[in-house]
């Protein structure tokens, strides 16, 4: 049975127009269009492109919620199994649109694949969510890109187990997938150690992580005029944990007003953190979030003001991806409220 596929392309490859048509809303046409013709031939009897979505790049990037819904509705309407997008080469917004289209379909459980130049901004944004085949930077590479995309797509659709990104020819997604190996971990560890001792090649099961760096901000000139905020990953919350921040792998953060609060006392505040012995934080939450001392310093004029709200989450098995997103949100709220500095406490 041939898999049913929807192809997503932009206004240019859909033959509607160039930059001036980049704000057209998505439309769907039965069958193939543009590069879909070549793709359909290459897919042969393994998969059939049943319809093509054509959408303006600017429209897609600017109306993600609507376009995402349109894509999923179309997949359902055509009873499709998968979505293939692009290739977008080095066209930035087309890359972002293709990546987004695949992400939206993948989130709804569909198999997806796109192609773009490795430096297209769409790669960094969406590679975790979809397979992306590397292409040349311009459409001149169409003839080279389509066979690779078609072959890999057919393989993924068939459910065949994929090798490494390098072996299969897609851009490494950086996504960890659990699997059951032949041997238990201890056996694998000792086997790896033997290879390492003998100087034979071995493959680590996990390459050590790399973290972002940011340029330090200049110092705050006059602290006595500054508003300072408290943020913590130590899980300090009002008693009862009103926003249900989880003990581990938190899915949210909370912001709590502390106007008039001069001391975090036991029984009114607690920790929600499951990763450390809670005894001491529950006895005196100031041990994690020093509201008492900052109130003193505020009264003495050493700092201008303690910001009226503290932000908190549980940093315990919490994904860096989530932490980054919340950090950006908290940072924006603080900046919009003219906070000059943040003291971040961690447990």
């Amino acid at each position: 049975m041939a898999y049913r596929v929807i192809h997503y392309i932009n206004q240019f490859f859909g033959g509607i127009g160039g930059e001036e048509k980049a704000d057209i809303a998505p439309e769907v046409r039965d069958g193939v269009a543009g590069p879909g013709m070549g793709l359909a031939k290459l897919l042969g009897d393994k998969a059939e492109i049943v319809a093509t979505i054509i959408c303006g790049d600017n429209y897609c990037v600017g109306n993600q919620e609507e376009v995402g819904k349109f894509i999923v509705d179309t997949l359902k309407k055509y009873n499709a199994d998968a979505l293939i997008a692009g290739p977008a080469f080095n066209a930035g917004r087309y890359g972002m649109a293709s990546g987004f289209a695949c992400s939206a379909a993948a989130a709804a459980g569909y198999t997806t694949l796109t192609g773009m130049y490795p430096e297209n901004p769409g790669v960094e944004l969406y590679k975790a969510n979809t397979y992306i085949v590397p292409t040349t930077d311009s459409a001149a590479g169409m003839g080279k890109a389509l066979p690779v995309m078609a072959a890999l797509f057919a393989k993924i659709l068939s459910g065949e187990k994929l090798g490494t990104a390098e072996a299969e020819g897609y851009i490494e997604r950086g996504v960890r997938i659990n699997t059951f190996y032949e041997e238990v971990g201890a056996e694998r560890a000792v086997a790896m150690l033997l290879k390492k001792i003998k100087g034979e090649p071995f493959t680590t099961e996990y390459k050590m992580p790399v973290f972002d760096r940011v340029t330090p901000r200049p110092g705050v000139k006059d602290l006595s005029k500054a508003t300072i905020a408290l943020v913590t990953s130590g899980g300090i919350v009002p008693m009862g944990n009103p926003d249900h921040i989880a003990a581990s792998s938190a899915r949210n953060y909370g912001g709590y007003e502390i106007d008039g609060v001069t001391d975090l006392v036991s029984g009114k505040y607690q920790t929600a953190h499951g990763g450390y012995d809670q005894t001491y934080a529950n006895q005196d939450p100031d041990r994690v979030l020093p509201v008492d001392v900052l109130r003193d310093l505020e009264k003495e004029g050493k700092i201008g003001k303690l910001y009226h709200t503290f932000y908190t989450t549980v940093g315990n098995g919490t994904a860096v991806g989530n932490a980054k997103k919340w950090g950006e949100e908290i940072g924006k709220q603080l900046k919009d409220n003219n906070v000059q500095a943040v003291i971040l406490t961690s447990t």
Binding site: L223, I228, G234, Y276, D277, Q278, T279, Y280, A281, Q283, D284, D286, R287, V288, L289, P290, D292, V293, L294, D296, L297, K302, I303, I343, T345, S346, T347
Partner: peptide
């Protein structure tokens, strides 16, 4: 479990320690 405290100190000593750490942060 207590980045800004030390449960083995008395209340006054512990707050003084916390203040020193916060001043360092400032």
């Amino acid at each position: 479990p207590h980045p800004l405290g030390n449960p083995t100190l008395d209340e006054k000593g512990e707050k003084a320690l916390r203040r020193k750490l916060v001043e360092k942060a400032l």
